[in-house]
């Protein structure tokens, strides 16, 4: 009897799998859309650069200053970064003063020479470290500046 139940269960499971495979491809878009809604289906801020905290609009371009990212597995890490994104029609040389922690004090000044691919910063906040990334992007230019807590 037990043996028969096992056989029936095995074959039933095999047929369920057959159906799963048959509906997998036609249903892929809707399955993926549902999966994308799961709470963990978003890209970690260490990759996206974090949420935009402040946007500075100039004549031909905008600067997005993102929230500093310190995300670790369980808690915030000692070292992190702040990402800056310039979008739009950018000048050849970019000079901006950044207050990323909204304390009304300049934390660092950044100088980008887009032609020479050269970026430098002047730090006024002891928690600002160095430039991690400075690169042209499809929308303009992005920089990540290292921070410590």
């Amino acid at each position: 009897m037990k043996k028969k139940v096992k056989i029936v269960a095995g074959i039933t499971w095999a047929f369920v799998c057959l159906i799963l495979i048959i509906i997998l491809f036609p249903g892929l878009n809707s399955f993926s859309a549902s999966t994308a809604k799961l709470p963990f289906m978003k890209i970690n801020p260490n990759y996206t650069g974090g949420e935009v905290a402040n946007q500075i609009v100039a004549e031909s371009c905008t600067l997005d200053i993102r929230k500093p990212v310190f995300d670790g597995l369980f808690k915030e890490r000692k070292n992190g970064f702040v990402q800056l994104d310039w979008r739009g029609n950018l000048p050849g040389k970019i000079v901006d003063s950044i207050d990323f922690d909204h304390d009304k004090k300049i934390d660092f000044c950044i100088f980008i020479d887009r032609k020479q691919l050269k970026t430098t910063i002047d730090q006024f906040n002891k928690n600002v470290k160095n430039i991690i990334i400075s690169t042209p992007t499809s929308y303009g230019w992005s920089v990540r500046v290292g921070l410590r807590k």
Partner: peptide
């Protein structure tokens, strides 16, 4: 633990997206 994906890809759009 972080409720996020540690990969610089797209969740739903484009070629070889994470969800699909």
């Amino acid at each position: 633990f972080t409720k996020s994906i540690i990969f610089p890809g797209s969740i739903l759009n484009g070629f070889a997206n994470i969800s699909s």
